[in-house]
Computed example of a mutant assay.
Amino acid sequence: MTSLGAVFRPQLPPERLRGVVRAADEAGLDELWLWEDCFLESGVATAAAALAWSDRLRVGIGLLPVPLRNVALTAMEAATLHRLFPGRATIAVGHGVQDWMGQVGARAESPLTLLREHLEALRALLRGERVDTEGRYVRLKGVALDWPPATPVPVLAGGQGPRTLRLTGEAADGTVLDADMTVDGLREARRLVDEGRRAAGRPGRADLVVYLHAATGPDARDRLAAELDAWGGARAEDHGVAGDAETVAGAVRRLAEAGADTVVLQPTADEPDPEGFVRFVGRQVRPLVPR
């Protein structure tokens, strides 16, 4: 089954979120994803609001930068969301943008070590365990949640490089891949995540969530080209998609065939109609993507 989502980008002011959430919920969109980008908007505050303003929409935070967060706080916030809105919140954590982490004095000397320690402690706390750990970065003494989630919840992690992708397979329940991803790159990411999972002796298959640059409307190609230029670097043809519902759905299907479980369409930063974009994804693209 392929789940389909869209991003509410934090370049939009927070007061625009309610209209986008309502439009997404009414259009039958599967998932709405939010970012905790410095220094724009909180991922947890916006997720709580989005969940409260919708009836069935699943909401993902992709992702929370672990250098900014004590793991006990991450666990408290994640548990609260899951108890308030069972089965509708998805939490992903990651390294964060290193320049931003440096700006706030939180840059870790070993981001991989920090992410591993954070994931191990976070997953244990969300299982309701009492945690004692004395790691390089994560230190807890007899910490347990008074209100852990009532049912098990997955914890996802973002990854790009090979070592981080393997780590997400070892220590997370799924992996979030940014929009700088081609079909071939996705296949390789799937291989690395699965390799990490096998190395840790973990059964089953991890979920992969991948973002996809997308634009629709009369100026879609120009806006997408400008967006990709802003991201920098050489670009392959399948780094994004611009066009009508069938064109966009075709790109989603290709990612699903390459190993994506959830494809999240990422509008351009200058998308002129965010509400219209989520309606387009929910009403026009969703029916063309096999569930």
Rank of each mutant, 00 (worst) to 15 (best):
D207W: 06
L208S: 01
V210Y: 02
Y211D: 15
L212N: 03
H213G: 01
A215R: 02
P218F: 05
P218E: 12
A220E: 01
R221S: 15
D222E: 11
D222C: 07
L224Q: 04
L224C: 08
A225V: 05
A225H: 04
E227I: 07
L228C: 03
D229Q: 13
G232S: 13
G232I: 04
G232L: 07
G232Y: 04
G232V: 04
G232D: 05
A234T: 15
A236G: 13
H239D: 15
G240N: 11
A242M: 10
G243L: 06
D244A: 05
D244I: 11
A245K: 04
A245V: 08
E246V: 13
E246I: 08
T247H: 06
V248H: 02
A249Q: 01
A249W: 00
A251C: 09
R253I: 15
L255D: 13
A256E: 10
A258Q: 07
A260W: 07
T262I: 10
V263Y: 10
V263L: 08
V264W: 04
V264A: 08
L265T: 14
P267G: 06
D270I: 13
P274I: 04
E275M: 03
E275T: 08
G276Q: 00
G276Y: 00
G276H: 01
F277I: 10
V278K: 02
V278R: 00
R279G: 09
F280W: 01
V281K: 01
